[in-house]
């Protein structure tokens, strides 16, 4: 019997060799991805996961885990299995080429033309 300094544990009268059956698959449930919004007007941002048996409890755990210091005004939870993600190996799909300046604001140099026009027509 464990003779603990902790009175609560002593009262439980636990045996040292209290072997238990191992936790089985799904004992800790599936996971939900948690998104929180720091303040109204902000985007929801992914902050981590919680294990939960259903969405209601995932919201509860999400609030406990990620809203502990008053940093959230709203949270979302989404089952991990419902998220479809791109593959890091396919990161090259995001690459672009310099010729795509036509779709950037910096690709348009109107002032150059205006200044040239003004200079030429000064007389």
């Amino acid at each position: 019997m464990i003779n603990s300094l902790d009175p609560r544990i002593k009262r439980e009268q636990i045996n040292e060799d209290n072997t238990i059956a191992p936790l089985t698959e799904m004992d800790q449930f599936e996971t939900y991805e948690v998104f929180h919004q720091k303040k109204r007007g902000d985007q929801h941002v992914h902050v981590g996961i919680v294990h939960a048996p259903n969405a209601e409890m995932a919201l509860l755990f999400g609030k406990e885990q990620f809203g502990r210091r008053g940093l959230s005004v709203n949270i979302w939870v989404v089952k991990t299995s419902n998220v479809f993600a791109s593959d890091y190996d396919d990161a090259d799909i995001f690459e672009t080429v310099p010729e795509k300046q036509y779709r950037e604001a910096g690709g348009y140099k109107v002032m150059d033309k205006i200044n040239k026009y003004k200079k030429e027509n000064k007389a």
Binding site: F29, E30, T31, I49, P53, T80
Partner: peptide, 12 residues
């Protein structure tokens, strides 16, 4: 609390 149709996938 465990529902039978739950399935674990590795978190993202």
């Amino acid at each position: 609390l465990l529902r039978k149709d739950e399935k674990y996938v590795t978190p993202l």
